[in-house]
């Protein structure tokens, strides 16, 4: 029961690790960035999960509702999403520049070329 109750947190941890694995294990720069985005997305999930309260509604004042979900984590994560998008965009921009300069986006190729 407890394990199922923490279902969203399990998803968070698994998605996080998938993303982290890609960041570390992939040598292709674009794949690394994909991994990084998945990694960050997992954190978004964590925040949104913690804001949700069982049977809670949107935090708009109304007579019928007594339980509200916490809106603050969602606000926070909006900011984090913006940060994440900027990071990905900048990362992709750098990958484009690397491709222009080196003609490759494979880490091993680039190290090879720098050694020359």
């Amino acid at each position: 029961m407890n394990i199922l109750g923490l279902f969203y947190y399990w998803v968070f941890a698994i998605v996080l690790m998938i993303g982290f694995y890609a960041v570390i294990a992939k040598s292709n720069y674009v794949k690394k960035l994909i991994g990084l985005s998945i990694f960050q997305a997992a954190v978004f999930l964590l925040y949104i999960t913690m804001g949700k309260i069982d049977n809670g509604t949107a935090p708009i004042f109304q007579d019928a509702a007594t339980v509200y979900s916490n809106p603050l984590p969602q606000v926070l994560i909006l900011t984090a999403i913006v940060v994440g998008i900027s990071t990905t965009a900048l990362g992709l921009g750098i990958v484009v520049r690397i491709r222009e300069e080196y003609g490759s986006i494979e880490e091993s190729d680039i190290q090879e070329r720098d050694r020359q």
Binding site: G91, Y102, Q111
Partner: peptide, 8 residues
């Protein structure tokens, strides 16, 4: 560029 990518 690769240096900054790693940093990023």
């Amino acid at each position: 560029l690769p240096a900054v990518f790693k940093y990023l």
